[in-house]
């Protein structure tokens, strides 16, 4: 039992989310949950690299979009089925992670430079998807409606929600397992001090590459979910900055480098966003303006995120004002 204890919170969260459809039948709420959990899944991918590994990406849309487009092309252009499309999309995300990671980590980019280069990669992908034939150009791709479990399309939103919840739980368990593993320890070590980790024999490049591949795969899986739920993607949705921003927001607001953080953060953010929207009476953009304010406040006052408020004792001490003298590095 002892070794299973760390997994308990994830399982409890999973049961709660899985039971949600029993209590709510409103399509609005179910839509909200499906979309929010899709973002939470993508955010967990970001968190693995950014939260645990300390490599902040500003361009996770590159993975989200690659997953969505790869699965759509797999199904529409190559004629395979949706389940293998799910696998193909996830693998494509890992591959994108490998390429972007290899190029940028080998060049030694970190901190703000890594953030900027990922942003640029996502933009390159967006421009390519917007102007190439196979991705449907600016019109995007409309996945044909073929309801049926074998096509990963469900007539009932609650069933789709069940699938999303299952996937989120599997990934959370995986992350919890990684956290306790040797790889997880190496990842945290390089976040805290890359030179020290290297000196202790951690192969920094390999650990970073593993992390970005896994991160890309998880975020790409979320992209496939988006495709299967909305049955439509275009370059602005799949590779847009909105998803890059949402995933880092959810992870930071929920709690960087925590297992539950991204889910808690995504639920809290979207909850506040919906609230702001209904209070502002349809003023466009007001929910996003609130997101931005939440980000500033979270960075200023909540270094451990929402999860950090609850578990003050196991969170790492925030390194406030610890940066010695800027510009000397």
């Amino acid at each position: 039992m002892r070794t299973l204890r760390p997994y308990l919170p994830v399982l409890v969260l999973g049961v709660l989310l899985a039971l949600a459809p029993l209590f709510v039948t409103s399509n609005v709420v179910l839509n909200f949950l499906v979309f929010t959990l899709t973002v939470a899944l993508a955010a967990q991918g970001w968190n693995l690299l950014g939260g645990f590994g300390g490599q902040f990406s500003f361009g996770h849309a590159a993975f989200f979009g690659t997953g969505a487009y790869a699965s759509a092309i797999w199904q529409m252009q190559l004629g395979f089925d949706a389940w293998t499309g799910f696998v193909a999309g996830t693998l494509a995300g890992a591959l994108a992670g490998l390429v972007i990671g290899f190029l940028s980590f080998r060049a030694g980019l970190r901190g703000s430079y890594f953030a900027l280069v990922t942003l640029a990669f996502a933009e390159v992908f967006r421009v390519l998807a917007n102007s190439s034939e196979v991705t449907g150009g600016a019109a995007g791709l409309l996945l044909p409606l073929k309801i049926g479990a074998e096509n990963l399309q469900f007539a009932d939103r609650a069933t789709f929600l069940g699938f999303v919840v299952a996937l989120v739980i599997v990934v959370l368990l995986l992350v919890q397992w990684i956290r306790g593993s040797r790889f997880g320890a190496q990842l945290v070590a390089l976040r805290e001090n890359e030179e020290a980790a290297r000196a202790l024999g951690v192969d920094v490049l390999v650990v970073k590459l593993k992390a970005i591949c896994l991160s890309g795969a998880i975020t790409a899986a979320a992209g496939v979910l988006y495709l299967q739920y909305f049955l439509f993607i275009d370059s602005g949705i799949a590779y847009g900055t909105w998803i890059s921003v949402e995933v880092l927001l959810a992870a930071i607001v929920g709690g960087l480098g925590t297992v539950l953080g991204p889910v808690v953060g995504a639920l809290a953010l979207h909850g506040v966003g919906e609230l702001a929207k209904s209070l502002a009476g349809g003023l466009p953009g007001i929910d996003l303006a609130v997101y931005g304010a939440v980000l500033v406040v979270a960075v200023a006052f909540l270094p451990g995120g929402l999860v950090g408020i609850v578990r003050r004792r196991d969170r790492p001490r925030p390194v406030r004002d610890a940066a010695p003298v800027e510009g000397e590095a």
């Binding site: 703000s112 921003v245 930071i252 953009g285 996003l288 980000l295 500033v296 200023a300 390194v319």
Partner: peptide, 20 residues
């Protein structure tokens, strides 16, 4: 708090606020 990543995040937050 004088940290590099935080500044990037705070200014990202500001840009989202201003834009919207």
């Amino acid at each position: 708090h004088g940290r590099d990543e935080n500044i990037l995040l705070v200014t990202l937050g500001l840009s989202i606020i201003i834009e919207n």
